[in-house]
Design a protein around this nucleic acid. Sequence first.
DNA 1: GTCTATATCCTGATAGAC
DNA 2: GTCTATCAGGATATAGAC
Lengths: 245, 245
Amino acid sequence: MALQSVSGRTQSADTKTRILDATEDLFVEFGYESMSLRQITSAAQVNLASVNYHFGGKEALIQAVLSRRMDKLNDERLKLLDALQSTQGAALTCEHVLVAMFLPALRMAGFDEAGGPRFLRFLGRAYTDVSSVVQDFVNGHYTSSLGRFFDAFQQTLPQLPRQELGFRLHFAMGAVAGVLASSNTNRLVHDFTRGQSDDEAVVIGRLAALMVAALNAPLPDPAQLDALKTIIARADESRAAESSR
Amino acid sequence: MALQSVSGRTQSADTKTRILDATEDLFVEFGYESMSLRQITSAAQVNLASVNYHFGGKEALIQAVLSRRMDKLNDERLKLLDALQSTQGAALTCEHVLVAMFLPALRMAGFDEAGGPRFLRFLGRAYTDVSSVVQDFVNGHYTSSLGRFFDAFQQTLPQLPRQELGFRLHFAMGAVAGVLASSNTNRLVHDFTRGQSDDEAVVIGRLAALMVAALNAPLPDPAQLDALKTIIARADESRAAESSR
DNA sequence: GTCTATATCCTGATAGAC
DNA sequence: GTCTATCAGGATATAGAC
């Protein structure tokens, strides 16, 4: 029986794959800037020089790691969106589009298996890592597909001005990425699916509920704005009274 | 007239302050791991060794940078929450609590001035930086005050189970941090406040609208879950038909 | 393809003169 | 307090034997 790594992979794969796997693990754990080639090659049990031989350098390596997962994810998302758009036509809803966004990721995570939710953390990292190497690559590979989803959302939410929709999507997608990237997605999924068998729908349902709520929030209302201004004014009065006590 | 840096600060301040200012700028721009002491001391126009003399090291330096802003912010938030709770009593609403969270940050940003929104980006960075040095410090300094806000939200949203509230707050706060940290907050504020004079209320109103919507979203509903499962099943059928074509 | 050994550079940190 | 000079170590990357 082959040795098992933490993420449940066998170590009998070829050098290139072992490097990719080890890099992915360390990227999830520490982020791009914090991981060194020495850490990677040590974890992968390969020679230090093999990274440059197979990939050319650290930057090309992380791009290969990202590409391995996200090219497929991107593809699946777009195909699913196509399928839903052609079968639903004008009946397409916000929930359909959200399913097209999240279902492929959950399928790829395959969170029935052991190392499942780790892929969701990987996705979260990819979207939240501060390194410009990662950011630029992700932006470059997603702007095209993001446009498709933007248009689809616009179709299901015609009352929202484009600019407002852009802000709300930015808000909501940032939230999802942050949730996925942050601590213990395993526990998150477990909490969601406690005692339920159809995990996928439950997880999507929980995230979609919040996203739909945010996307469908009422547009800024002058009356509410006035109410807010009153609260702020009262708050200032309270603080003034507090500090002069 | 003193030389002006990009962020509008004079360069005549003392060494310690110049180091703090330069570090803050570079932290906003590149994140903790990516900035070097040489970059910092060069930007601050001070000697390399002065960082270790005044602060003791890079780790202590970033903690001083974070502490300088966030101690005050934390303090202001809690005082405002206290004031609102004592004046509103049982009439405290979700919007009140959100004002207590956001108003101090906007006041500290002072975004009437030139370098204003930069502070919001700083806050976003502080909450999203991947470095464990930053994460641990922020977590350590915020868990106490987070508890206070958690309880306040729980009071205004009694129908939400604690665990669900925790998840939704995590979701919403992550979204806010992501929005602030990401590109061009200047433009964001400008877009929000186009042609309006009372910027604070507008910005808070926009963010609060989405947060209130997410926090008040209906609880997971078996009927909606079934609808979602139907969508997923249809999606699978469509994809199967698509790939066998 | 894989290895050892090493080149080159940059990092944070410090010793010691002034 | 501030400077110069430097240390020790880690970073990526590569040359060259096998």
